Amino acid sequence: MDTRPLCLPERLDEVDLANPALHATHNLLPLWRRLREEAPVYWSPARGARPGFWVVTRYADVQAVLSDHRAYTSERGNLLDTLLAGGDSAAGKMLVVTDGPPHRALRGALLRPFSPRSLEVVVGSVRRAARELVRRAVERRTVDFASEVAAHIPLAAICDLLGVPPEDRPRIIGLTSSALSSAEGVPTEEATWSSRNGLLLYFSELAASRRAKPYDDVVSLLVTREIDGRPLSHEEIVYNCYSIVMGGHETTRYAMIGLLQALVERPDQWRAYKYGEVGTASAVEEALRWTTPVLHGGRTATRDVRLGEAGDTAG
């Protein structure tokens, strides 16, 4: 059960939605509900030197922002901190912050290792690793599920794909965890950027080693791959390795942690799944919906646009 105090401000502009501490220390469900009902396209005002930004909270509006590649761009960043800081240095080089034909070309280069056939070997490895981790956890009877189970399952698959040696994986776990969050709940800017730079440096060195001696992994594929008749640059390779490990590891880990907590708090839901009343596919979809492992996604309007039933203008 979420024991954090509810976020119930008298006025919406009292709340700083860009403050990580707010999300770590308060239950924001009442705030999201109020925004959807009263201000589904809400202008979060500037604070000090930091610019203001639009907050879109209704499903249809969010879908419109994410699907319209002409009115909105990802090339200025998709995370709030980088957007408010003025942009993302990986824009145009990393898949998730690339638009148009370059996005399609880069996506094509990354598709092959993630096809169902290519992933068959990885899926088998993940299943074996997951069963072993759970078996050890059950034998110990007391376990930190977040750090001892959930952190290792997605990372094993991603590191297998990228060709990260087993001895380096604890380091990758630590860097990815501190790059987005903190054990204390409120990450510092210094710790966050230090961890992100540590990941970039690691994959820069790994890419350099694969250029000298390619293996059967995603990094080796990228260093030998061409898009639009040219090889991928070193920056493109490093940024996309970073994106794969960050996007795949943290979101999956958070989803598993949130799912376990939800099932502990709702034993009737656990029983429904345990006895086959709910299938695994629908349980996974509901876990992703319920836990929401991604806190937000950002885009920048390229022109003035209208959103919402009241025709709110965002630009």
Rank of each mutant, 00 (worst) to 15 (best):
E184W: 08
V186E: 08
P187L: 06
T188R: 07
T188I: 10
E189A: 15
A191F: 10
T192G: 10
R196E: 11
R196Q: 14
G198Y: 06
L200T: 09
L200E: 13
S204M: 12
S204A: 15
L206Y: 00
A207T: 00
A208V: 07
A208T: 06
S209Q: 11
R210W: 00
R210I: 03
P214L: 07
D216S: 09
D216A: 09
D216K: 06
D217V: 03
V219M: 02
S220I: 01
S220P: 04
L221G: 03
V223S: 00
T224K: 11
E226F: 00
I227G: 01
R230E: 08
P231N: 00
S233M: 00
S233V: 01
I237P: 01
I237C: 05
I244Y: 05
V245P: 02
V245D: 05
M246P: 06
M246Q: 11
E250G: 06
E250H: 10
E250I: 10
T252A: 14
Y254M: 15
I257Y: 10
I257M: 14
L259M: 15
L260M: 15
E265A: 14
R266G: 08
P267H: 09
P267M: 10
Q269W: 13
Q269D: 14
W270I: 08
R271S: 13
Y273D: 07
E277L: 12
V278F: 09
T280R: 10
T291A: 09
T291F: 04
L295E: 12
L295H: 12
G297P: 01
G298F: 04
R299Q: 05
A301D: 02
A301K: 02
